[in-house]
Design a protein around this nucleic acid. Sequence first.
DNA 1: GTAGATACGTCAATATGGCTGACATAAATT
DNA 2: AATTTATGTCAGCCATATTGACGTATCTAC
Lengths: 162, 162
Amino acid sequence: MGTDAQRWDIIELLFFAYRDFVGDADHVLEAFGFGRAHHRVVHFVQRYPGLKVADLLDVLRITKQSLGRVLKQLLDEGYIVQKAGAADRRQRLLFATAKGEALVAKLAGLQTDRIDRAMDGLSLESADAVRQFLRGMIDRDDPDKVLDAIMTSDRAMQKDRP
Amino acid sequence: MGTDAQRWDIIELLFFAYRDFVGDADHVLEAFGFGRAHHRVVHFVQRYPGLKVADLLDVLRITKQSLGRVLKQLLDEGYIVQKAGAADRRQRLLFATAKGEALVAKLAGLQTDRIDRAMDGLSLESADAVRQFLRGMIDRDDPDKVLDAIMTSDRAMQKDRP
DNA sequence: GTAGATACGTCAATATGGCTGACATAAATT
DNA sequence: AATTTATGTCAGCCATATTGACGTATCTAC
């Protein structure tokens, strides 16, 4: 086999970078009695207010049973609220409370600090190259609503969800 | 908390990129009856032959009990072998067998394909920017042996790795 | 208006992969 | 000889994921 056209360097850098990236949030979450699953849920709800449960399942790629347990805790403890959809009242649209927003901001702040440090010394072009690389790493065959928003907007992305 | 200089775009791109990156390997691993933990172990053993158990614990940042279960399976099924250290015979130096090498190559091939697609269209400078960014994302306060090798040898690879 | 599809919730059982604490053994170090 | 180190192992706990089945409210179509 014609070995080693392998991207060993990038493969391992991605492993270590992601390990430390999520590690930032882990310590804070522990103090709240939460895990990574809670972070992911409250993060995307805060970022895309009015997200449906089904959307969240698409984004996180987990089953509704797994989501249910975590979501229930976040609802019970007041980090997220549900509202019935106006058009379709079966839907439970999800919104972060002030408490939820604060938690997300705290965690994103830690991760932003790390990204800022990593971006320090990179030109604007280099920063765009990083974005382009990361976008290129993402599957495009089944773009759900949220992913679509991320992939299409280069750097103008805010809370304009339906 | 109110100041939104958050790097929302990079935070979410990293989430989706890593999700799909590890997803490549997951399907193959399933056919082998393995999980992500097995992949990580056999990967680093193949990449750094003669790795000690203690080194592996540093790299993966898990406990020896967690590692033990996974490592035992890989040993029993012939993906990895142990040899006593020549200088210190307490040590169990780990090596990938041909079977282990083949599995690692298969999984790295999938991930390399994805990286190649993502790198396609990026200049050499941009590719280096990506490496620099990923290195910058990694904690440096407690560099173990393997991580040290990656962080330093990575510079040399910038030249011979277009 | 009834039939069926859809959105969501929930119950029960199971697997993986982390964790802690305690203890054992062999070999190196002092 | 005593201690430290490298590793293995037992027993149990926790978080997070899985599948399958079933219930309920609500929307859509005929």
